[in-house]
């Protein structure tokens, strides 16, 4: 049996592998880890799906280019901030490229017509980033517990269903729900903390 902890690459190991430019599998892993985040960010920033997909691709290319420059230097900012800088530039490129007659689409995105201001970009990024951390943490936790336990956890915690409903839905007893809630919950918090430490530093 392989080592579960290595199944999803950590950012650190991923980035060092990405430096080897031609490691396709690592780029895939990078895409897996951050693609969704970048896509959602681009869409929330007012792009349509295909533009957003472009942004994801462009961002990954930019990351590849700038990666050799990026160092783990707390003074120079976090990985999170660095990635935001890159993706924001790509999104802004797309918005600029748009014909003038289509501003309506941008306006339709609540809160983002003002997206010029730094704070809005930041808060959007922060929200998406939080979602990203949660998703990633869930992915990692999934590999660490039995599927049965995770099923209980996802209903009881992620979907916030009452214990009795979870018991009925999965045909389990309350003790198992309690156990899953606490054990998986603890792992989940640990993973979020770990990702935070790794990616926000």
């Amino acid at each position: 049996m392989h080592d579960d902890a290595d199944w999803l690459p950590t950012r650190r190991s991923l980035l060092s592998r990405l430096r080897a430019w031609d490691d396709r599998e690592s780029w895939n892993a990078f895409y897996e880890a951050y693609g969704r985040l970048l896509f959602r960010y681009a869409v929330k920033a007012g792009l349509n799906a295909s533009e957003a997909e472009d942004v994801v691709q462009d961002t990954i290319v930019s990351v590849a280019k700038e990666l050799p420059e990026f160092r783990y230097d707390p003074e120079r900012g976090s990985f999170k901030g660095w990635l935001h800088q890159i993706v924001r530039r790509r999104v802004v490129d797309h918005l600029r490229r748009r014909p003038r007659e289509r501003p309506q689409e941008i306006l339709d995105v609540p809160g983002l017509q003002e997206a010029d201001s730094r704070d809005d970009w930041e808060s959007l990024w922060n929200a998406e980033w939080a979602q990203h951390l949660t998703t990633r943490a869930i992915e990692r936790v999934k590999t660490q517990v039995s599927a049965r336990q995770f099923q209980i956890f996802s209903l009881a915690v992620l979907q916030d269903q009452p214990g009795a409903v979870v018991c009925r839905t999965l045909g389990v007893n309350p003790a198992m729900v309690y156990l899953a809630r606490h054990r998986v919950g603890r792992l989940f918090r640990r993973e979020v903390d770990r990702l935070r430490r790794e990616e926000e530093r």
């Binding site: 999934k142 039995s146 599927a147 049965r148 995770f150 099923q151 996802s154 209903l155 992620l158 979907q159 269903q161 409903v165 009925r168 839905t169 999965l170 045909g171």
Partner: peptide
Amino acid sequence: EFPELPADFGSRPDHASLLELNEVIL
């Protein structure tokens, strides 16, 4: 998304059978 179940899983009419199938899948 495996093994997450949809929120309405418990209220599906064939829930009992699905729960059995869930065992096989898990």
